[in-house]
């Protein structure tokens, strides 16, 4: 998929890539950034208090749109996604900073390093491994479409 990117998006992604190479976020490494608009990140499960995910390795896909960084990128876990109250089986993640709009928390000041670290700390603070309510129904309904098309409710401040 050859997307045309604005030069702003291109240079911003390039500079994030350079910064990532210089100091990668803890426990994460970049598996692929070809094409530049689609990254695959490998994430070692965090230790945390509960060590729920400590021995697991997850993969994340980050797809940048041409409006990046004004629009957040699509961020999903590749199968098998972690079992977590805020992560659906199809990889969609319920985390406000990944989405813009009325209740979203995306800011162009966020970089992919920071996003990946937030996801890791979200895993680290989980207290039990369980799927979100209505997981099967949600996955059957949305399938593999972009998570940005879903309407998210961000309620739980604890995890």
């Amino acid at each position: 998929m050859a997307k045309t990117l604005s030069s702003v998006a291109q240079r911003r992604i390039q500079s994030e890539l350079t910064e990532w190479m210089r100091s990668p976020p803890e426990g994460c490494c970049l598996e692929s950034c070809e094409p530049m608009t689609s990254w695959v990140v490998v994430m070692q499960g965090p230790e945390g208090h509960s060590r729920l995910y400590a021995d697991e390795v997850f993969r994340l896909r980050i797809d940048f749109g041409e409006q990046y960084p004004l629009d957040p990128p699509d961020v999903v876990f590749l199968a098998p996604a972690p079992i977590h109250p805020h992560i659906y089986s199809n990889g969609h993640i319920c985390l406000d900073i990944l989405y813009s709009g009325n209740n979203g928390g995306w800011s162009p000041a966020l970089t992919m390093s920071k996003v990946v670290l937030s996801l890791r700390s979200m895993l680290a603070s989980a207290t039990e491994k369980k799927k979100p309510p209505g997981d099967a129904e949600y996955c059957a309904r949305v399938g593999n479409r972009s998570p940005k098309l879903s309407r998210w409710q961000f309620e739980d401040d604890k995890v």
């Binding site: 030069s7 702003v8 240079r11 911003r12 500079s15 960084p69 162009p108 000041a109």
Partner: peptide, 12 residues
């Protein structure tokens, strides 16, 4: 100071 949005100093 690069711009905190586009990450560049000189914006073409």
């Amino acid at each position: 100071g690069e711009c905190a949005i586009c990450g560049m100093y000189v914006l073409p």
